[in-house]
Simulated assay, not measured.
Amino acid sequence: MTTVNNTALFIVHLPSLSPDCYRPLSQPIANLTRITAKRLLVVLVSEEFDDAAGIPSEHSRHGNVERDEVHWHAIQRLLTFVYVQASKVAAEQDNLLLQIDVLLKTPHQLRTHRLDSQRGDEEVVNVVYRFENDHLEVSPSLARASQRRLGSLGPHASSTINDAQDEQDEPKKFSTPLSRFPVIALGGTFDHLHAGHKILLSMAAWLASERLIAGVTDTSLLGSKSNNEYLEPLETRIGRTRAFLELFKPSLTYDVVPIKDVYGPTGWDPDVQALVVSRETLSGAAAIATHRAAHDLPALETFVIHVISAKDESIVLEDAVELRKAKMSSTAIREWIAARVGREYD
Rank of each mutant, 00 (worst) to 15 (best):
D94M: 11
V84C: 12
E344N: 15
V256Q: 03
V321K: 06
V102A: 09
L103Q: 14
N31F: 03
F49K: 03
Y230I: 09
N227E: 15
I161E: 08
Y83S: 05
P140A: 11
F174I: 01
L317I: 08
Q99K: 15
E132S: 14
K325H: 11
V307Y: 02
D50A: 15
L150H: 12
L78R: 11
S283Y: 02
R180N: 01
I35S: 14
A287N: 04
A145M: 12
P233D: 05
N133K: 13
P270V: 00
R292H: 00
S26E: 12
Q93F: 02
D319F: 09
K249N: 11
S278F: 02
D101L: 07
V82N: 06
G196R: 07
V82P: 10
S278Y: 05
L14I: 05
R343F: 07
V82I: 15
F181L: 02
L17M: 03
F10E: 10
L104R: 11
L252E: 01
H306M: 03
R240F: 09
A145Q: 14
I29F: 02
G54M: 06
D169A: 13
D166S: 13
L9S: 11
V4T: 15
R111F: 07
D269W: 00
R334V: 09
N228G: 02
V65E: 06
Q93Y: 05
L79I: 07
D319L: 15
Y254I: 06
G215K: 01
V276A: 07
